[in-house]
Design a protein around this nucleic acid. Structure first.
Length: 830
RNA sequence: GCCCUUGUGGCGGAACCGGUAGACGCAGCAGACUCAAAAUCUGCCGCUCUUUUGAGCAUGGGAGUUCGAGUCUCCCCGAGGGCACCA
């Protein structure tokens, strides 16, 4: 065998093209029953390929390569989420057109992906900013429109003052824009929305199908986001007029404890009063100025103002309740009005105490008020003595009987606001005609290229000609909608487009039946309620629009953790690159100029903290295989991964050792009898396959290293053929993680076929079986030694051997009881 | 405030269904090779006492169930995440 040293650079060069991709045609997929769709969240082409990408795509590639060896027709596509703000911002700062900027970034990033040896089907590549993609999306949009799932209305919306656009609820995190981080303002604007709330129940039910295959955390987050609550609607009649105040409650059982009504400052009655009453107007204005950030809400005092109005108690004739406008009642949940039951609600209690309102207990309890738990009802006429669930039920039936209310379920989920006042997005294909109203565009709406970026407003709005069109219905002058779609719209269905990216209709349904749901979807957990909720909604809506047959986009989900690194700051308050931190003579950390440095705990890699590691420099110094191996070693995929250059060195060291053993192998395949390594090999095939199956890649690496240690230990003693055979099996199982070195070794071992075409190793149950086991001996539950015995030996023999091993110190006759767990333990109780 | 997850050596992490805690690595220590260093190889490596042998203590803390608990139950503490004037 050739004895050249491990030179990762030449190996990378040699196999780059070989590894760059595998294509499986639709014909192959449709004719076989073994499609396996492995997908990683598509990247935004920022131009920067960071360690988060490396981790995400390495995990996906390892899984895809192994599935392919297992004989599946693997669909493993890649594409570009290429609409969005950064391209437009770049255009504003350097005058480069967003398309040019985007295309050039895509080519840079595609090159990086090739460098890492990721196996993609490049024939399926898509870019969401291409007309082929977004014009198909417009068809979907219009079909949703026809189904009544799209509407335009004026309402309070989240306005991001930095990105100069509105945002969906899901995109506001702690009162700030998800991308810009700016405090979101409330504006009353006319915007396009998607009726995702129509699918609230379906989205909730769909979570049940994903239990066990999606992380519990994600299911829980979506469940909370949808926020179903059941209760009742109750009408309270105003004393002063014929009007009603409609209230939603989850506690109709406490209706007899009602002592006031509170309406939102944005409630129509509050607004009407504000027109004539200065005190009310001042109060309403004050509330609208109130910040909606978390901290502000935390601190805000419960405040209210009496309207002068009263309502009749719906179930206690003769009783009258005062109506307040209160700052804690929000307009966009329930009906924007509540009844206050201070005895059994903390907020109502605070309010009632402040304004001297009655506190009427209706649940018998020893606990101090407010008491929100269950208990027998009191002061509640026909509910007296009943507990929570039954009391609720009886009250709902009662108000339904009286015709003053009904059972009601509400959701926290809001409709998805999808219009954005930006250029670089999919144009909303609607034409606004003064005569006909909103009319669907009769042909695809292309983004014009000749636009100006001066940073003020939407360039489409200011384009001299683009928006002026004739109405497709009446032929009169009309204008195009100049808003574009939220970019989450594109990522909500791209996994369907990969199945047939050139098709002249949006989705190839035959392929959808064959390939969906995606078998494994890999990406960051930050999309738990954004992208992952929208994609689930899309499947439901697309099914109703006749585009797909299934309802689940992703069968299994793996949310990988962040890549983190320690950060360092010097005494001047500047962040310092980890590589610039050294230790002085006293062992204290200092930077290059000798300033003392403080270490900060590992955090997500970010340029501003200088704790980034560039993928280019690291593959240059350590090689792609080592980086790939390292990123799947040690840490489970779903946990945060702390970058550690020493451990990366360890990965290189391991590959060198592998190479060293490889270069001493003989080409002889002659084997002499039943060897130790044969059994070892089968045991490891079994274990490693199992760990791959659950995507426990860190455990796969540990087992591969154990297996290799065994091979290495037997280099001198095993016959050449057995050694070679064990090593080849090892190489096949190592290959999905480090494809470059494995391709090279496989070829040099004299194979004319490629390792990527090898079938996954199978094990023989008999050979993989353990023959002897080590049994632990305990006396009164304390470890007192071990002994070995053949597997499945009967208890009597095991007990005998245990006492032999214990020696003279213990006598069997003095044992009160002896517990034997087969193949594991003997516990002698004295 | 509510909900969820989580806590194991100096570090990342293993440990099937309650049955030998610490696999596999990283760091560290000692030795071999070397003029020396690096690389490589060999050995050690939870803590305390002990000459070896061994004994005791150890999975955030405290109780409990059990022959036996990292694993199950209850209480408390810490960390991370989600939601939030949600009626």
């Amino acid at each position: 065998m050739t004895r050249v040293s491990y030179d990762f650079k030449s190996i990378q060069c040699k196999w780059q093209d070989e590894l760059a991709g595998f294509s499986v045609s639709n014909a192959e997929i449709l004719s076989s029953k073994d499609a396996c769709y492995i997908l990683e969240m598509l990247p935004y082409p920022s131009g920067k390929f960071h360690m988060g990408h490396v981790r995400n795509y390495t995990i996906g590639d390892v899984v895809a390569r192994r599935k392919r060896m297992e004989g599946y027709k693997v669909i493993h596509p890649i594409g570009w989420d290429s609409f969005g703000m950064p391209a437009e911002n770049a255009a504003m700062s350097n005058g480069n057109h967003p398309r040019k900027w985007t295309v050039s970034n895509i080519s840079d990033m595609a090159e990086q992906l090739r460098c890492f040896g990721y196996m993609y089907d490049w024939k399926r590549e898509i870019s969401t900013c291409s007309a082929e993609y977004y014009t198909q999306e417009q068809k979907i949009f219009l079909d949703f429109y026809k189904l009544g799932l799209v509407y335009r209305k004026r309402s309070y919306v989240n306005w991001d003052p930095v990105d100069q656009t509105v945002l969906a609820n899901e995109q506001v995190i702690d009162g700030r824009g998800w991308r810009s981080g700016a405090v979101v303002e409330k504006k009353f604007l006319e915007q396009w929305s998607i009726r995702i709330t129509a699918y609230a129940e379906g989205l909730l039910a769909g979570l049940e199908d994903l239990r066990g295959v999606w992380p519990d955390k994600v299911l829980k987050m979506q469940e909370n986001w949808i926020g179903k609550s059941s209760g009742a609607i109750v009408n309270f009649k105003l004393v002063e007029s014929d009007e009603n105040i409609i209230v939603f409650t989850t506690r109709p059982d406490t209706l007899f404890g009602a002592s006031f009504i509170a309406i939102s400052p944005d409630h129509k009655i509050a607004k009407r009063l504000a027109q004539t009453d200065d005190t009310v107007r001042n109060f309403v204005d004050e509330c609208s100025r109130m910040s909606t950030t978390e901290e502000a809400i935390e601190k805000a005092e419960k405040k209210g103002i009496f309207t002068g109005l009263h309502v009749r108690h719906p179930v206690m004739p003769g009783e009258v309740l005062m109506v307040y406008i209160a700052n804690f009642v929000v307009i966009d949940y329930g009906t924007g009005a509540v009844f206050g039951c201070p005895a059994h609600d903390e907020r109502d209690f605070e309010f009632a105490t402040k304004y001297g309102l009655p506190i009427i207990p209706v649940i018998d309890t020893e606990d101090p008020l407010p008491y929100v738990g269950d208990g027998p009802h009191i002061n509640s006429q026909f509910l007296d003595g009943l507990h929570l669930d039954e009391a609720k039920e009886r009250m709902i039936l009662y108000i339904e009987e009286l015709g003053i209310g009904h059972r009601e379920t509400t959701y926290r989920l809001r409709d998805w606001l999808v219009s954005r006042q930006r250029y670089w997005g999919c144009p909303i294909p609607i034409i606004r005609c003064p005569k006909c109203g909103d009319v669907p565009a009769d042909s695809p709406v292309l983004l014009p290229d000749d636009v100006e970026f001066d940073g003020k407003g939407n360039p489409l709005e200011k384009h001299p000609t683009w928006k002026y069109v004739k109405c497709p219905r009446c032929g009169e002058d009309a204008i195009r909608e100049t808003d574009t779609l939220d970019t989450f719209f594109e990522s909500s269905w791209y996994f369907l487009r990969y199945l047939d990216p050139q098709l002249t209709t949006p989705i190839n349904m035959e392929m959808e039946r064959a390939a969906l749901p995606v078998d494994l979807y890999i990406g960051g957990v930050e999309h738990a309620v954004l992208h992952l909720l929208y994609a689930r909604f899309f499947m439901l809506a697309l099914r109703d629009a006749g585009y797909v047959s299934g309802s689940i986009p992703f069968k299994a989900l793996l949310t990988q953790g962040m890549v983190t690194h320690k950060a360092y700051k010097n005494n001047a308050g500047e962040w310092v690159y980890p590589s610039d931190v050294v230790r002085d003579a006293n062992g204290n950390m200092i930077d290059g100029s000798g300033n003392p440095v403080t270490e900060y705990p590992a955090e997500k890699m970010s340029k501003s903290k200088k704790n980034v590691v560039s993928s280019e420099s690291i593959i240059d110094s350590h090689g792609v295989d080592a980086v790939r191996l390292f990123t799947v070693s040690d840490t489970p995929p779903e946990k945060d991964f702390e970058w550690n250059t020493d451990a990366l060195d360890g990965a290189v060291r391991f590959l060198r050792r592998v190479w060293k053993v490889f270069s001493t192998l003989s080409s002889s395949r002659e084997q002499h009898g039943n060897t130790i390594l044969l059994k070892t090999t089968h045991m490891y095939i079994k274990q490693i396959s199992e760990k791959y199956e659950t995507n426990s890649l860190n455990k796969v690496v540990a087992l591969l290293r154990e297996f290799f240690n065994e091979i290495e230990d037997n280099v001198e003693t095993e016959d050449e053929g057995s050694l070679l055979s064990a090593f080849e099996t090892f190489t096949k199982m190592l290959y999905p993680m480090v494809p470059f070195i494995c391709h090279e070794m496989w070829a040099m071992l004299g194979h004319t076929t490629k390792i990527s075409d090898e079938p996954w190793p199978q094990y023989d149950e008999k050979l993989a079986a353990v023959e002897t086991v080590t049994i632990a001996i305990q006396v009164n539950g304390r470890m007192r030694g071990t002994f070995t015995v053949e597997k499945d030996a009967d208890d009597e023999l095991v007990i005998q051997r245990a006492f032999e091993a214990l020696g003279d110190k213990y006598d069997r006759s003095s044992a009160k009881k002896i517990f034997v767990v087969q193949n594991r333990i003997v516990n002698v109780v004295l």
